[in-house]
Write a protein that binds this DNA or RNA. Structure first.
Lengths: 195, 195
DNA sequence: TAGATTAGTCAACATGGCTGACGTATTGCA
DNA sequence: TGCAATACGTCAGCCATGTTGACTAATCTA
C-alpha cells in the first residue's frame, strides 16, 4: 500500500483498487499459511535426515496404500528420477514396502510399514492439529468456504481426483490390501488418460 | 482411504475417522491449491531465468515500496545470503532500485523500477486471475471463510503484519515515497522486536 | 569513542527439482 | 510367437534455493 506507481488506482474508493487489494491479501494469506503448514513437518523430518519430498511421498502412500509408482508420480507431479531418490531411501530405511503387482508384475505397489505409518501419523497429526485449531476458531461455515475456494484454485486434475475419491466407496466395497488385483488409487482401475 | 492400518478407525461411522478424513482433505486441498498458485508465475519467471525466490522478493518490494533489506528478510524468513543472491540479480538487471535511507544511511530502501513493476504486475495479475475465478465461483461468503481459515493457519507474526497493514492508513496519512524518513513496511517505524 | 546495527561478501554444503540416456522385466497385441 | 509398449530403476550431471560460518565496511547510538 502506498505504492507510488499505483497512486491513480487508489485515489478515492476506486473499486478496481479495492478488488486488487482484496485479491492480494488472498495471495499473501495463502503464502503465509502454506509456510506455516510445512514448518512443523519440516522440523520433524530434519531430525531423521528427510525433507519435504519424503513427506509428500509418505503422505500419499499412506493415503493410497498399494499405489503404484507411476500413479504416485502423477499425483506428485515430479519426475521418476526425483521420486526414486527419496523413495529409495525410504525403502532402504524400512519406511516403505514394495510388492509386485499380481495383475501386472511390472508394477511395484507401495505401502507403509509400521515404521512408516508411525512417521506418517506423526507428520499428519501435527498438521491436523494446526488445521483443527484453525477450523475450530473459524467455524464450520468458514471451513466449508475454505475448502470451496481451494477447490477452485487447484487444477482440475487434482480436484477430480479428490472428488472421485470422496464420491467413491464410503464403505468396504473396495478392499485395498496391497496385493489385490487393483490398487487403492482412485484413477487406477481404468487408466483413462495414459501418461 | 482403505488404509489397512486404520481399519479400526473407519469401522462404522466413527467420528474420529470422519474428523481425520475431513482434516486430510483440507491438507491435500492446500497442497494442490498452492501448487496451482505457483505454476503460472513459475512459467513466466522461467522465461527470464528467474525463479520463485525472485517472485517472492519482487512481490513484497512492490507491496511495501521503500522496504529495507532486513524487513524483507523478516517477511521472507530466509537468510540474507539467500536473498542477496536473487536481489543482486534483480538490481543488476534493473528490476529493483536501491536508495540509501535518509534517516538511517545504512539502510538500503528497495523499490521497483518501471521494468520491475511491469514484471510484478504480470506475475500478480496472473495469480489474481486464478483467485478471482475461484472467488467468483465460490461466492463472497466462501471467500470470507477462506481468508478466516488461512489466517488461523498462518503464524501469528504474519497474521499480525497483515492486520496491522490492513487496519493502518486507509488514506494518505503515510506517504511512502522511497526516500521518506520512514519505510512503507508496517512494522518498520517502531522496531518492537529486534531481529 | 565503543559497541551495536545494517548491509554485503565469500565459501561450502544440502535438498530437491530437472534433462538425457540406458537397462530390464513384463505385458499386450498383430 | 515375436515385437513394441509399458513400468520401473539407474547413472550422470545441471540448476535453483535454502543453509551455516566467517568476515568486512559503513553508520548509528549510548
Amino acid at each position: 500500500m502506498g505504492s507510488p506507481g499505483k497512486a491513480e488506482l487508489k485515489a478515492g474508493a476506486n473499486p478496481l483498487f479495492l478488488r486488487e487489494e482484496e485479491l492480494r491479501r488472498g495471495l499473501e494469506s495463502l503464502f503465509y499459511a502454506y509456510r506455516a503448514f510445512t514448518a512443523e513437518p519440516d522440523r520433524i523430518l530434519a531430525e531423521i535426515g528427510f525433507g519435504r519430498a519424503h513427506h509428500r511421498a509418505i503422505y500419499f502412500i499412506g493415503r493410497y496404500p498399494g499405489i503404484t509408482v507411476s500413479e504416485l508420480l502423477q499425483i506428485l507431479g515430479i519426475t521418476k528420477q526425483s521420486l526414486s531418490r527419496v523413495l529409495g531411501q525410504m525403502v532402504d530405511q524400512g519406511y516403505v514396502a514394495q510388492a509386485r503387482g499380481t495383475r501386472d508384475q511390472r508394477q511395484r505397489l507401495l505401502t507403509l510399514t509400521d515404521k512408516g505409518r508411525a512417521l506418517e501419523q506423526r507428520l499428519t497429526s501435527s498438521q491436523c492439529r494446526l488445521f483443527a485449531a484453525a477450523y475450530k476458531t473459524a467455524g464450520a461455515e468458514a471451513v466449508a468456504g475454505f475448502r470451496t475456494v481451494l477447490a477452485g484454485i487447484m487444477e482440475e486434475v487434482d480436484r477430480a481426483r479428490m472428488e472421485e475419491e470422496h464420491g467413491g466407496g464410503e464403505g468396504e466395497e473396495r478392499p485395498a490390501d496391497a496385493n489385490s488385483a487393483h490398487t487403492a488409487f482412485p484413477n487406477a482401475s481404468a487408466p483413462r488418460d495414459p501418461v
